[in-house]
């Protein structure tokens, strides 16, 4: 703990605030890219039913792939093509996005699918057009699941970004990896505590947002079916 409370570690180019900032920057960029890819794709597959095999296959295959191996493999493959820093930032981002897409994709798909067929039918009966059904019925109803997918994805990203310090990416993982290299256990503990707190904070933040934006009509459930509002977390595999 000494490391954390030493003021020297809270300033400078490799100070703790900088590391937190880097960690967040990489994480949020990766999350944004993943969401931009996965949400529309999930909606498309959910609404049209095309490419469903992709969903089941992706979810299972990516869970089995060891992310450390994937990270290192991609870095070795891609980095020679880029100058200096980009050589490890880019592959890291690619891996982060790759790992974040499946939870968002599968949950979006499941969310759109799970919308009560009767509700969709009723909307169609009232003369809603397909687009309007999507924006007024299907999306609001599937929001809890989509958000829960985003939550899993963010955890996955924060966790993997920590590991990416091994291939010299910045962020809180630096404390863990450098601490290990320098045999400085207190530095490692500081890193571990900070990463854990960061993950907990963002997880709770997203849980809070989910509760705020989800229609109360969807959350009025008992324990048994509470999974609609707050599904079991998709395990983070890092």
């Amino acid at each position: 703990m000494n490391y954390l409370f030493d003021p020297r570690h809270w300033t400078g180019a490799d100070g703790i605030p900088t590391l937190i900032g880097e960690h967040l920057l990489y994480s949020l960029i990766a999350l944004a890219i993943a969401a931009v890819i996965a949400v529309p794709l999930g909606i498309y597959i959910g609404v049209t039913g095309k490419g469903v095999f992709l969903i089941a296959g992706l979810a299972n295959a990516l869970r089995a792939l060891p992310s450390v191996g994937l990270l290192i493999l991609l870095v070795l493959l891609i980095s020679p093509a880029f100058p200096s820093k980009m050589g490890y930032i880019l592959p890291s981002l690619i891996v982060l996005v790759l790992l974040a897409v499946p939870p968002i994709l599968t949950n979006t798909y499941a969310g759109v699918r799970a919308v009560d067929a009767a509700a969709v039918d009723a909307a169609r009966g009232m003369g809603f057009r397909t687009m309007k059904i999507l924006t007024d019925v299907q999306l609001p109803c599937s929001l809890p699941l989509v958000l829960s997918g985003v939550r899993s994805a963010l955890l996955q990203i924060i966790s993997t970004a920590t590991i990416a310090a091994y291939i010299s990416l910045g962020g809180l993982g630096r404390l863990l990896i450098d601490g290990k290299a320098q045999n400085d256990y207190s530095q490692m503990v500081a890193g571990a505590v900070l990463v854990a707190l960061l993950a907990l904070f963002f997880d709770q933040l997203l849980a809070f947002i989910t509760r705020r934006v989800v229609s109360p009509g969807l959350t009025r459930r008992t324990i048994k079916s509470a999974s609609i509002a707050e599904p079991a977390k998709t395990p983070v595999t890092v």
Binding site: S159, T162, G191, A196, D203, V236, V238
Partner: peptide
């Protein structure tokens, strides 16, 4: 929620 590397440490 705790990342695995952190938990290991």
């Amino acid at each position: 929620t705790v990342p695995s590397l952190a938990l290991f440490v």
